[in-house]
Computed example of a mutant assay.
Amino acid sequence: MQFNTIPEAWQAISLSVLALLVLTALVFDLRQRRIPNKLVLLMLGVGLLFNLIGPQTWLQGTGLFTNYPGALGAKGALLGALTGLAIFLPLYLLRAMGAGDVKLMAGIGSFVGPATAIDVALFILVTGGVLAVVRMVWVRKTQLVLFNVVTALGQWVPGSVAHFDPATQSADRMPYGVAMAVGLLAYGAWIFSGHHPIVNV
């Protein structure tokens, strides 16, 4: 069921709600170092709902981050959530990212769809890398962080006795919600300043 909503109005409301939910997750991450499951479930539900009832344009399924916004439907929202989950799941399995961050990316994916979820994830990863380097220099733990990186990579070499546990040996952990919020904002700025998506399907 679609409502007769002006596409631009639907886009503005959807982007505002997405931004509000991501900022709420960021506040939880900064204060409690966790993102509540209830917030992620709310995000998934709202993303699905907006893509179910949003307007269909002549370019059906164009999504939020475009000059021709249009709802993706249930299939697009669900595929976006699964794509977001799949992209960050390996980082969780390597213990380089928390489960809440992975689920938050699934929530973002439910709003933006699969192709845009890949783009947003790339921006988040680059943003996270830049913020990590800045923080590493700021807190003056460059040598310890580099040692941990070498140790973490070395444990994958056959025959190596190196072992690295991110949960106990990290020199400094940045709440990844910061990278997710800034990365999403950076992607929006990239698209709405006239650049093309990186993944264009």
Rank of each mutant, 00 (worst) to 15 (best):
A167P: 00
G61V: 10
G100M: 04
I35E: 08
G47E: 04
W58Q: 08
L91R: 01
V17D: 09
P55T: 09
I108T: 08
T127H: 13
F147N: 07
G47V: 03
Q155K: 02
N4S: 14
F65H: 12
A19I: 10
R34E: 15
Y187D: 08
G73A: 11
A132D: 03
P114A: 15
L131C: 12
G80K: 04
L59P: 00
A186E: 03
T116S: 10
V145A: 14
L78R: 01
A162E: 13
P114Q: 07
G80R: 03
A171Q: 04
V201S: 09
A77C: 06
E8W: 02
A25I: 04
G107A: 06
V40T: 09
T57Y: 01
S193T: 13
G47T: 02
D101F: 04
V150N: 00
F50W: 09
L72K: 05
G188W: 07
K75I: 10
I87R: 01
G73W: 13
V22E: 08
V40N: 13
M174Y: 03
V102T: 11
G194W: 09
R140N: 13
V201T: 07
L49E: 00
Q56P: 00
I87C: 04
I35W: 02
G70M: 07
L122M: 14
G129Q: 12
V134P: 06
V22L: 14
L42T: 13
A25R: 10
H163L: 01
A117Q: 06
V46N: 05
Y68M: 10
V40K: 00
K141G: 12
A181K: 01
K141N: 11
A96H: 05
I13C: 10
T127C: 15
V27W: 12
L18M: 15
R33F: 09
D172S: 15
V137Y: 14
I108F: 05
P36F: 11
A99H: 05
R95W: 04
R173W: 09
W138Y: 13
G129S: 12
S14A: 15
L184Y: 01
P90R: 10
A19L: 14
Y187K: 07
L49I: 09
G98I: 09
A74F: 12
A171Y: 03
K141V: 08
L89M: 15
F3E: 02
L39K: 06
N200K: 08
A179I: 05
H195D: 00
L48F: 11
N200F: 03
L52M: 13
H163D: 05
R140I: 00
V126D: 11
